[in-house]
């Protein structure tokens, strides 16, 4: 099988995932996967960048400048959202998995977790935005 057909297959499956009408639970699951992949990608890069402390301090410090660019700081906001959503939704899944009777309140549990995500995420986002604006002046 060719690379193109692997990509084609993945696209077909991804379209099915996206168009499947599973309601709120399905949407929460899609977002859990996407945020998980986002955090994984950052984590792999983060292991590599921390590995670079083994090299010359000057080189490492020069590279940290990249992470402090305003556009990367906006990326931090995305990272915060991904980590917070994945953690809160994960806690919800674990709770329902270990207390299966609660699955009938799945919709409510998602609504609660959305509130918790916003309570944790919005202040963090505002602080990071404030820091970006300060650094621009």
């Amino acid at each position: 099988m060719s690379v193109a057909s692997v990509i084609e297959n993945a696209k077909v499956y991804a379209t099915r995932t996206w168009t499947y009408e599973g309601g709120l639970g399905q949407r929460a699951w899609i977002l859990h996967r996407l945020t998980g992949l986002g955090v994984f990608t950052f984590l792999a890069l983060h292991i590599i960048d921390i590995f670079l402390v083994g090299f010359d301090p000057q080189v490492f410090n020069a590279l940290t400048v990249i992470y402090h660019l305003p556009v990367m700081r906006l990326g931090h906001i995305v990272l915060f959202y991904c980590v917070i959503y994945h953690a809160v939704n994960g806690a919800r899944i674990i709770t329902l998995d270990f207390f299966p009777k609660l699955w009938r309140y799945q919709k409510e549990s998602i609504q609660i977790s959305m509130i918790v995500v916003m309570v944790l995420f919005i202040p963090s986002m505002l602080v990071i935005l404030y820091e970006i604006i300060i650094s621009l002046e």
């Binding site: 402390v53 301090p57 490492f60 410090n61 940290t64 992470y67 402090h68 931090h76 990272l79 915060f80 980590v83 917070i84 953690a87 963090s124 602080v127 990071i128 820091e131 650094s135």
Partner: peptide, 20 residues
């Protein structure tokens, strides 16, 4: 992870101050 994320960003010296 949440502790790590919050401390590295908002603790001392803050994310912009982290050097080698």
């Amino acid at each position: 992870v949440l502790a790590h994320l919050m401390y590295q960003h908002f603790g001392t010296p803050g994310v912009a101050g982290i050097k080698w």
